[in-house]
């Protein structure tokens, strides 16, 4: 069965805000696909459209070859959906939540244990605890179990790792990888750029438009300029000084360094170095580095803004 998703020219407007501006996107059956973008980019709107919760203004989309408008009933049987907000019953225990969602889909927990087993063993010790009293990471695991209980073909996860600490986040991604091996198409929305590398392919999305769709590697490879990491004793002052530098294309704080690109294709680093020295930055470490998804996102989004 083809559990892919194809989206054509999909648009959605709320009042005067255009949340999605004619999106085209194809997600393959069985793919682990990332939708990477900040809050307000349109990720949730796209998910709600795909989950048959909203009607598009223009355009169409198909899940498992079924139209999201006409075939909404069939899609609802094939779909596992985890909204951004923690959407389980806080006053029900872990096991009661799971049982409830099993009955909603007219199935039983036991019949689907193979699907949820890996996740279930982690929350089983807390099965009689009220969902409202779980930690953020545990809540997400429970929500994932509930979304999987009916063996969906497509899984839509809207920011499952937002507000979840780094440890729980990495565990959560491990679970998604295991699920992928069961053949489920998984689409994950996330504002964390570093999570892009955990997906097979990603779409970078901002202000209702897709900036780029590709494998994380390809996106990084397509970075147009040479990227340098500059480290000085006072990164912030260095940042301010570089902004004044005539050849600066972009300069951003990046962890313990500054990420710098030059407007020129060919240039000598010595020039940058001596400029900064003249500004009083004596201990400089400048090295050529490989860009990350975040660098690409920033480059793409400033470029997109530039055309506006």
């Amino acid at each position: 069965m083809n559990a892919g998703i194809s989206i054509e020219n999909l648009s959605k407007t709320y009042g005067s805000v255009q949340a999605l501006k004619g999106i085209n996107l194809d997600i393959n059956s069985g793919e682990l696909f990332g939708l990477i973008g900040p809050d307000g980019a349109g990720k949730t709107t796209l998910f709600r459209l795909l989950a048959t919760l909203l009607l598009p203004d223009i355009g169409s989309a198909r899940l498992c070859d079924i139209d999201i408008v006409e075939g909404y009933k069939q899609i609802r049987n094939l779909l596992g959906y985890m909204p951004g907000k923690f959407s389980l019953y806080q006053d029900l225990s872990v096991i009661e939540n799971l049982e409830f969602f099993a009955t909603v889909f007219d199935t039983r927990i036991e019949d689907n244990m193979d699907m949820i087993h890996d996740i279930w063993v982690q929350i089983e010790p807390f099965k009689d605890r009220l969902a409202g009293n779980l930690s953020g990471g545990m809540k997400q695991k429970l929500a994932l179990c509930c979304a999987l209980i009916h063996q969906p073909k497509v899984l839509l996860l809207d920011e499952p790792t937002t507000g979840v600490d780094a440890v729980s986040r990495s565990e959560f991604w491990q679970m998604l990888k295991n699920l992928k091996s069961k053949g489920i198409t998984i689409v994950v929305a996330t504002p964390y750029m570093d999570e892009a590398n955990l997906c097979e392919r990603v779409a970078l999305i901002k202000d209702g438009e897709i900036l780029q769709v590709n494998t994380p590697q390809e996106i990084v490879d397509q970075f147009e300029r040479k990227l340098y990491a500059i480290k000085s004793d006072d990164n912030y002052q260095c940042l301010l000084d570089l902004r004044e530098f005539e050849f600066t294309n972009s300069v951003f704080l990046f962890g313990q360094t500054l990420h710098y690109t030059d407007v020129r294709k060919e240039f000598s680093l010595e020039e940058v170095n001596s400029y900064l020295k003249s500004k009083g930055h004596l201990h400089l470490e400048i090295e050529h580095v490989k860009p990350g998804i975040e660098d690409c996102f920033m480059a793409l989004s400033t470029k997109a803004d530039g055309y506006e």
């Binding site: 900040p38 809050d39 980019a41």
Partner: peptide
């Protein structure tokens, strides 16, 4: 800065 885009 939760959820804010990288440039912002």
């Amino acid at each position: 800065t939760g959820g804010v885009d990288p440039v912002t």
